[in-house]
Design a protein around this nucleic acid. Structure first.
Lengths: 180, 180
DNA sequence: CCGTAACCGGACCAACCGGTCCGCTTTTGC
DNA sequence: GCAAAAGCGGACCGGTTGGTCCGGTTACGG
């Protein structure tokens, strides 16, 4: 069990990606059958790999969070601290926008391994914020959680907006509001 | 059918109130059984009064909207136009906060009689806004929909906030932002 | 090339849920 | 009081969905 057979590994990847898009499009109640169909795989294969649906949801959330985390880690090396923070916000916002379920799902997920990755993201986020503050690019008194809430609010507000690209304007407003 | 029998009327009220709290606590997927149980009524009674679950959802939304509408109408007589508008925002925000499902539900509801009440609320809201603007208590270029989106965003942002009263701070920020 | 272990997937199961129906009870008008 | 009309609610139905299982298939080491 330590290493997956080649076909099993391939199917696992396809299931994760299919589940991610299905949850994004249809919400967290997308059926296992739908996910299996999108992955080009049988119902049973999904259920064997993820014994419970909540586990599958958690795995998808974790995957997306880890993508954000990887990008955030890269941004720690960006020389312009203010630009790095802005880019981080854009990356996170874009993820939340793409996967509508992401923001809400991460908040209410009770799985330990998702919560821990969330903490890591907040940690890196805080480091980006402190760096930007030292560079004088951001006001005092805000932490990673405030930024998260604000960005989440902007996305949610844009959810029912007239034009679909409004969310970029809203995020920009938040970013402007963060400046010193 | 013109007038309900006394017990039927009583049960109807209890069903509506039970459905409202159930949807608020458990989301729009609260089961009919749960609602019937809370109302102290049989499964069948709920289904007869509301032949479809969507109809029940719509009835709850309409009820809440009409409460807001009634309060808004009263506020048209409030002498201080600025205070009236602020109070209107607080009432609406408090409703959305109490019934988490309200804001999102009203937006995506397709029932005509819900949409029409929503329009009425927006209409009164716009009148309150115009009155406040004439009194110089609010900036130009915002209408009822903007205010709705902003308040909704504030509520959503506060949904997962640390302290439960954070939403009041957020709404206050929005109100401050609306001033001239 | 072959045997075996891992894997696949569709048939199956059980739980749940929205909606219907009908025998029984309560209200109401007289 | 009484009969009829209105209402009630639990048993039931059909469809959906998450999860299991096992016969057949595929990949991998020797």
């Amino acid at each position: 069990m330590s290493v997956l057979r080649a076909d099993a590994r391939r199917n696992l990847d396809r299931i994760l990606e299919a589940a991610a898009t299905a949850f994004a499009e249809l919400g967290p109640d997308a059926t296992i059958d739908e996910i299996a169909h999108r992955a080009g795989v049988g119902h049973g294969t999904v259920c064997r790999r993820f014994p419970t649906k909540d586990g599958l949801r958690a795995a998808v959330l974790r995957m997306r969070l880890e993508e954000i985390l990887a990008r955030a880690n890269e941004l720690l090396d960006e020389p312009d601290a203010g630009a790095a923070l802005a880019e981080f916000v854009w990356v996170a916002a874009e993820s939340c926008r793409r996967d509508r379920y992401l923001f809400e799902g991460v908040e209410k997920c009770v799985f330990e391994d998702v919560a821990s990755v969330k903490e890591e993201v907040h940690e890196i986020g805080d480091r980006l914020i402190r760096r930007a503050r030292r560079a004088g690019a951001i006001r005092r008194g805000v932490d990673s959680r405030d930024v998260g809430a604000l960005v989440g609010a902007a996305i949610q507000a844009a959810q029912h907006a007239e034009r679909d690209e409004d969310w970029r304007r809203y995020v920009q407003v938040v970013l402007d509001g963060l400046r010193a």
